[in-house]
Amino acid sequence: MIKLVNLSMNYQGKQVLENINLEIATGETMVIIGPSGSGKSTLLRLIVGLVRPTSGEIWIDGQEISQLKEAELNQIRLRMGMVFQYSALFDSMSVGENVAFGLRQHTSMSEAEIAKVVSRKLRMVGLFGKENIMPNELSGGMKKRVSLARAIAVNPQIVLYDEPTAGLDPIMSGKIDRLITSTRRIMGVTSVVVTHHMSSAFSIADRIAMIYGGRIIELGTVDEFRQSQDPIVQQFIHGTKTPGLLARRRTKTEC
């Protein structure tokens, strides 16, 4: 379980996150939405320990991690995987080497066993047999899928996704959404997905949290979220400057 308690983050004099309280249950898919620059990605980076909070606590499976040393944090990170916004594949390594990287560093598996795992993970993301391709030969969607294969190669319990569908066409976005869902189903992982694509959020989320101005202004299931009376939430869902207008129209039509 991931639990954030009174979490605040101040960066270069700017309050990025303020008093965030959030619990993410084991096996749950929590989608964090919000406008650009609202602190969504910072929240992910806090959870994985890439940045330290100004104040507050971060609990991962009952352990408070915000004050841990890097070596201690690494023990927690072994249970985590992360898909980065721009994939962050190691460009000097092939696809297979990228996926195998964590296994080579942290396990005593033989090369034959590693090759099997790599092949299985690449098959999961629909890239079977692409081990020898270099990252610069891949499309954006393929890079995201390799990044996911790398993240899940060491069988993590928590997978964090930073804008997994950003810059992708709707078909590829749908494919990535289905991968996130199937990864959760097959591996039982806890997923935290940062996105500003509402269609993605609605299709993969168990619960959605909306961050605005560094605070969580709405938290609930997909249905609760759709029915939110908050004008900012409605504006974000419908992408219109007249909050709630489209929702009201739809309600009228349905009646």
């Binding site: 890439l50 023990q75 990170r77 980065f84 916004q85 962050a88 190691f90 942290h106």
Partner: peptide, 17 residues
């Protein structure tokens, strides 16, 4: 260039110093 393309962060997330 590894830093600006988040590859350093990827290393840290993978528990590699």
């Amino acid at each position: 260039s590894m830093k600006v393309t988040e590859q350093i962060d990827a290393l840290r997330v993978m528990a590699i110093s």
